[in-house]
């Protein structure tokens, strides 16, 4: 039982990274990589209880996924030359496969490539990085699973057929492309913050997913704008319980009980890094936006630090 829990934990922690690396290894074939990663986790469930959990679970999973992909490619004769080579069987070979900067970064930029329609960018990001199933994404956007599946298939075949690269963009394009990634994350958050369809006004699952993705982008790029975006989302999300009354009706800010409004999501809510600055040394616009001037109903714990980081004295915003 302990192993099952351990595998589940590894799955939650490593799934996106293993997938991102496998997509690189399969030269951007999303479908093949997804299948191979699924097979790798199935192999883990079959083998780890008997053999024990490997020291480097991610390396193990990537190696197995790669071998599964190679097998699948060998079956597809015409694609044989995409991935050449013998199976990876030892730990050194597995280590070599994962010894590159985090592949999730390539994955984010590819999913949010401007050559894909915005809806496709969102769906693909939630599917590959968020690990949501097609049904879950369809539910989140209140469309049928069939429509969502088609959207994902079209997006993946455009990546393959149009030659959208599986790469972190070159420096000259980076600010614009990172902006596109953040736009997708913020669109996901916005849909959760004020749902355009459905019964619930606030879709917490989407807000949570957007914050998780935002943190990932901030962590991987180190971009001050991305950190500002995370702060902004956390700030809005801190008020989630105060925005509706007991019957889920919207509640104006002035009426909302300060105590409900002032509950930060967690201690992790507050950014702990040094003052976000843009590459040119200016103050990040999102950082400025996310440090409001004086709304008394917002969390002192979540606001004060970001305020001070933008050059103002920390002052409790509510008591």
């Amino acid at each position: 039982m302990q192993t099952a829990a351990a595998i589940e934990a590894v799955f939650r922690r490593e799934r996106a990274r293993v997938l991102a690396t496998t997509i690189r290894i399969t030269h951007g074939d999303f479908d093949l990589a997804e299948e191979a990663v699924q097979d790798a986790f199935a192999a883990a469930i079959a083998r780890w209880p008997g053999e024990g959990t490997p020291d480097e679970p991610r390396g193990w999973l990537v190696a197995v996924a790669r071998n599964k992909a190679v097998d699948a490619i060998r079956r597809r004769v015409k694609l044989r030359d995409i991935v050449a080579g013998e199976p990876v069987t030892d730990a050194a070979g597995a280590a070599e496969l994962v010894a590159v900067p985090d592949d999730r970064l390539r994955l984010i930029y590819t999913c949010c490539h401007p050559a894909l329609a915005t809806e496709a960018q969102i769906a693909l990001t939630l599917r590959t990085l968020g690990g949501l199933t097609t049904d879950e994404i369809a539910r989140a956007f209140l469309t049928s699973p069939v429509t969502m599946a088609q959207r994902l298939v079209r997006a993946k075949s455009k990546i393959r057929d149009a030659g959208i690269p599986y790469e972190v963009p070159e420096a000259s394009q980076l600010p614009e492309r990172t902006g596109a990634v953040m736009a997708v994350v913020y669109l996901i958050f916005n849909e959760g913050y004020a749902a355009t369809a459905g019964d619930a006004w606030i879709r917490r699952d989407l807000c949570r997913e957007a914050i998780r993705l935002g943190r990932l982008v901030a962590e991987l790029t180190g971009d001050p704008e991305a950190r500002g975006l995370v702060a902004l989302m956390l700030l809005h999300d801190a008020r989630r319980d105060a925005r509706t009354d007991a019957r889920w009706s919207p509640m104006p800010c002035a009426v909302g009980p300060a105590r409900t409004a002032c509950r930060p999501r967690s201690r992790r809510s507050t950014p702990r890094r040094p003052a976000p600055r843009t590459p040119t040394g200016g103050r990040s616009p999102r950082c400025s936006t996310s440090s409001p001037g004086g709304s008394r109903r917002r969390s002192s714990r979540s606001i004060a630090p970001s305020r001070s980081r933008c050059g103002r004295a920390p002052r409790p915003a509510c008591r």
């Binding site: 490539h113 050559a115 149009a162 030659g163 959208i164 690269p165 790469e167 963009p169 394009q173």
Partner: peptide, 9 residues
């Protein structure tokens, strides 16, 4: 002839 879509664009 281009390496990928980014080069083509």
């Amino acid at each position: 002839e281009a390496k990928d879509l980014d080069e083509a664009t």
